[in-house]
C-alpha cells in the first residue's frame, strides 16, 4: 500500500503539484492520467524518490519514505521496480547483464542462480534467448519488455511504469498492458502506471487518478470513468472520435 498525502512540488516559479493525495493498493493497477504538464510524471518521480516534494508525505506500508535518508531508503528501493518511458536500459550491458545487475549489487547469489533468474524474467516477458543481445539490437517493444524483466528481477512489491505504451504500436501496447496485469496478479504488486493511453485506461485501470493543472480532479475506476460529468475528464478521455463513439456503448 502506498499513501500519498498532500504533495506539493514546484520548479522555480512553476508550481507543478498542488496538494495531491491518493492511496494505491496492492494487487491493483493504479493509473495516473492527465494532459501534458499536468504533473503525472512529477508525481511518480516524487513517489519513487527521484524528486523531493516541497511538502507532503509518501508512505510505503506505514514507513514515511520522504523523511528517509538515501541509505535508509535502500530497503524500500529494493522492493521497487520501475519501467521508464524510454526503458533506460544500460546500453553498455547485455540484456542479461541489465537484468542481473541489481542481483549482483545486492545479493550473494551464485552465477548460475543469477542466470536462472535472468532466464525466468526473460521467459516471463516472452524474450527467452535474448540474453546476449545489447539494447541497441532491440526494437522499442522488446526494450520495454526487457525493462519490465529488469523491474521484476528482485520480485518487487511496488511496480512503477512511466508511460509504458509510448512509441509502441497498438498490438504491442496491448501486450505490454497484459503483461503488467499478469505481473500485478502474480506478485500482488502495488502497480502505478502513468499513461496517456486510453486503451490502457479502459483495459487495466482498477483505480484511476486524473490530474488537471497539478491538482487531483477525479479518482475512480475504469467502469466509472464513462459516467462522470467532470468536464475536464470527459474532454481528456473522450477527445478522439473513436472514444466518443465508444462512450455510447459504455
Amino acid at each position: 500500500m502506498i499513501e500519498v498525502s498532500d504533495i506539493y512540488k514546484s520548479f522555480g516559479e512553476n508550481e507543478v503539484l498542488k496538494g495531491i493525495s491518493a492511496n494505491f493498493e496492492p494487487g491493483k493497477i493504479s493509473l495516473i492520467i492527465g494532459g501534458s504538464g499536468s504533473g503525472k510524471s512529477t508525481l511518480l518521480k516524487c513517489m519513487v524518490g527521484l524528486h523531493h516534494p516541497d511538502s507532503g508525505k509518501v508512505i510505503y506500508n506505514g514507513t514515511e519514505f520522504t523523511r528517509l535518508s538515501f541509505e535508509d531508503r535502500i530497503p524500500i528501493r529494493k522492493e521497487i521496480g520501475m519501467l521508464f518511458q524510454n526503458s533506460a536500459l544500460f546500453d553498455s550491458m547485455t540484456v542479461e547483464q541489465n537484468i542481473i545487475f541489481s542481483l549482483e549489487m545486492f545479493t550473494d547469489m551464485s552465477k548460475s542462480e543469477k542466470i536462472d533468474r535472468a532466464n525466468f524474467c526473460l521467459e516471463r516477458v516472452d524474450l527467452a534467448g535474448t540474453n546476449a543481445l545489447y539494447p541497441s539490437e532491440l526494437s522499442g517493444g522488446m526494450k520495454k519488455r526487457v525493462g519490465i524483466a529488469r523491474a521484476i528481477t528482485m520480485t518487487p512489491k511496488y511496480l512503477f511504469c512511466d508511460e509504458p505504451n509510448s512509441g509502441l504500436d497498438p498490438q504491442t501496447s496491448i501486450l505490454i498492458d497484459e503483461l503488467i496485469q499478469e505481473l500485478t496478479d502474480e506478485f500482488n504488486t502495488t502497480t502505478v502506471v502513468v499513461t496517456h493511453d486510453m486503451s490502457s485506461v479502459m483495459g487495466i485501470g482498477d483505480y484511476i487518478l486524473f490530474l488537471y493543472q497539478g491538482k487531483k480532479n477525479w479518482e475512480g475506476s475504469n467502469k466509472e470513468i464513462a459516467h462522470t460529468d467532470i468536464k475536464e475528464l470527459n474532454e481528456f478521455v473522450f477527445a478522439s472520435p473513436f472514444m466518443k463513439v465508444a462512450k455510447k456503448s459504455f
Binding site: 518521480k45 519513487v48 524518490g49 527521484l50 538515501f70 531508503r73 535502500i74 528501493r77 529494493k78 521497487i80 520501475m82 521508464f84 518511458q85 524510454n86 533506460a88 536500459l89 544500460f90 546500453d91 545487475f101 541489481s102 549489487m105 545486492f106
Partner: peptide
C-alpha cells in the same frame, strides 16, 4: 547521455549510489 536517457535514475531507483 546516461542522465538524459534516465539510466542514472534507474540506478538510483535500484538503491545504487
Amino acid at each position: 547521455s546516461m542522465r538524459v536517457s534516465e539510466q542514472i535514475d534507474a540506478l538510483e531507483i535500484m538503491g545504487i549510489n
